[in-house]
């Protein structure tokens, strides 16, 4: 490793470790919590990036995998079934089941043209939600629209991340514990994404994305490779879902709407499809932006005495416009990868 990048790595690492304390001091605990959720979005965006950015498959129901991971964790760690399993089983179980769903969905549909796949995945996302909403009878599995409550917080053996800890006289609240866990997972996610991209398999995905017919003629089993991308992406989603359930303490179908899927897609597209740094940037921006817009809503209230434009409304409106403008003006995203930059300059 070069000396310069090594120094940056140390500095960046130190900044990330100190960040929650700085946030807590300056803006309060609420913001640490916001950053925690943002990290989960980063993980989701990294997963979807494998599917959309690397393999070029448009998945519009990605949130379904997030839901699967969340419900698996919730069922294995709540009074719903009276189970309390350790997270090193519950989290991988969620990721694995999500990957299985990915394969189940992909196997029959991946040989279809890309735009059909988009619609099928969209339908799949809705089906999962409908089932989550209705599987409270005849046997109560998901507890229907109320969702599952009292989920055990993330814990390693007897060490619960859901409580305040004192280390060397330092107060470390729950949100900060969770921050560190999520940070580790996200960094691992980034490293794995990077390695995948640079591997024989990542190269094959890129080839399929560029020209599927040529790729198949070079001996690539396009269907299996696409399935692999689907399963990998889904497992990121499932893992993120498990962490979400353990962090939030309850899950309900409301968290897994189409809007969430589209939101994650926006993160990937706006950040820079296929580029890890861009995707992380996109996820961070879009996860934190709503909070900023909420503040804008407060301003509006103060200045005009009423809310003209509902912030959540405004958020989706802006995202929609950003998607369109991005595709028309800057298809590589805010921070495109080198290859995409070449693509833009080449034209």
């Amino acid at each position: 490793m070069k000396g310069v990048s090594c120094r940056w790595l140390v500095l960046g690492g130190a900044a990330l470790i100190l960040l929650p304390f700085a946030l807590e001091l300056l803006l309060g605990n609420g913001w640490v919590r916001i950053v925690d959720f943002a990290l989960l979005y980063v993980l989701l965006a990294l997963g979807l990036n494998i599917v959309v950015g690397y393999a070029g498959l448009l998945d519009l129901g990605y949130v379904a995998f997030f839901a699967v991971g969340a419900y698996v964790y919730a069922l294995l760690n709540s009074p719903q079934w009276g189970l309390h399993w350790p997270i090193w089983i519950a989290l991988p179980a969620g990721a694995l089941l999500a990957a299985c769903f990915g394969v189940l969905l992909g196997a029959p549909t991946l040989k279809l043209r890309g735009d059909y796949l988009a619609i099928v995945t969209l339908g799949f996302g809705e089906i999962i939600r409908i089932f989550l909403n209705n599987l409270d009878s005849p046997i109560n599995i998901t507890n229907g629209p109320q969702g599952i409550e009292l989920i055990d917080s993330l814990h390693f053996g007897s060490l619960s991340l859901g409580q305040m800890h004192h280390v060397l006289g330092l107060r470390i609240p729950a949100v900060v514990n969770v921050y560190y866990l999520f940070l580790v997972v996200v960094v691992l996610g980034m490293v794995f994404s990077h390695r995948l991209e640079r591997s024989r398999i990542g190269r094959a995905w890129a080839a399929i994305r560029e020209d599927e017919v040529a790729a198949a003629s070079m001996g690539l089993n396009t269907r299996n490779l696409k399935l692999l991308a689907f399963a990998m992406g889904a497992s990121f989603g499932g893992l993120s879902g498990g962490l979400f359930a353990g962090f939030q303490g309850f899950v309900s179908p409301e968290s897994f709407t189409l809007q969430e899927s589209v939101m994650i897609l926006c993160m990937v597209v706006l950040g820079g499809m296929g580029h890890i740094a861009g995707v992380v940037l996109g996820a961070m921006l879009l996860a934190i932006l709503p909070e900023a817009l909420r503040a804008a809503g407060d301003w509006e209230q103060m200045v005009f005495g009423r809310i003209w434009v509902d912030p959540s409304n405004l958020r989706l409106l802006l995202f929609g416009m950003a998607l369109v403008l991005m595709m028309l003006r800057r298809p590589g995203g805010l921070w495109p990868s080198n290859a995409r930059r070449n693509e833009l300059q080449g034209q």
């Binding site: 519009l60 950003a322 369109v324």
Partner: peptide
Amino acid sequence: LAPLITAIGLSMVIEQ
């Protein structure tokens, strides 16, 4: 992928 993504964006804009 590009027109599909603009189409989704448009759909959001129209709804909002």
